[in-house]
Amino acid sequence: MKKILLLTLPFATLLTLSCGNNIEQQQAATATEKALAESKKAFRAVEDLNNDYREIPDEKMLENGGQNSAIYGEMKKRYKAQLSEFKKEVESTGAKFIVVIITPEVGPGITNRTRYGHPFIKSTCTELGIEHYDLSPAIAAQNPDVITQAPKDGHWSKKGAIFLADQLEPIITKYSTHKTTTTYPDAQRTETFGDLAPGSDEILDGGKNLPYRVVANAQGLRMNEDVKFPKTKQHILFMGGSQIYSPFLDNDFIATTLLAKRHPEMVIMNSGMISGCTDDFLSLWKEKAKYSEPDVVIVQTNGTDITDLFFTNRNHLARSKQPYYPSAEEEKYFRNTYRK
């Protein structure tokens, strides 16, 4: 009897383990199915909203005295709340939070979004105690034919990226000894910190016949090297839109790579996205960027980030793919502007 029991024991153990595994697998499968169902539901909601509300106002919001309108006031309030949350989120990890205002607009033809947006961003940063730098006057003093891809496009040229790196370098060196207080165990860390396809190497041209090579590291960031853990160097994380992502330039020529070459003692991470606003940067931070354990976080913003918070812009362009329902003010503005 004892022998029988002894012989049965390994089989019983295996059976129990396999049952356990099955239960775990079933639980995991149920969770995945649930998540999938939720994401499908959100996708359908976004689709429905986009069908009902197609137009995105952008610059139109600020036409004819729109800078004093209730809708712009609401967007500013929303922007301020997000910036405040962003600061708290970043600083809770012990990282330094810095805002840089970067816009490609040069000369007298600046848009209202820049004209009215930049003073607001600066005053908000001061009010919230955020260290900020406005690079737009320095950019405006440059020749657009030299620093941008003009006339084909307004993003940085090779020389423009050097100029941008020169502007950003004093900011990162100022905090070269700053350290975050937070580290994450490997099991908790997300596989990616940015939204690019991990390990991708492709040629894009933005439909402007300006081909460029985009290399993403294994963590979905626009950089050639993978970020290693545990950290041995200071981590600087750049977040922002296309001015940080830098379309129409190969990785080797973008400002963050140039900074990385100048400062081998730092790991300069670029999580820039081709189109995005503070809402997207904040969601990226919460979801995955914070796991890159940055010591300094530099967020690029400009006036378009305020109007980009309008619900139709979010439903069409937000990275989160979650539905943004209109507030009473947004609904009123939308009806008055597009459904007269």
């Binding site: 492709e202 040629i203 894009l204 041209d205 016949n209 300006l210 081909p211 460029y212 190969d250 080797d252």
Partner: peptide, 13 residues
Amino acid sequence: EKVVNYCYASHED
């Protein structure tokens, strides 16, 4: 196509 365009446009690099 895009790789071809890239090679001609970035020949200096």
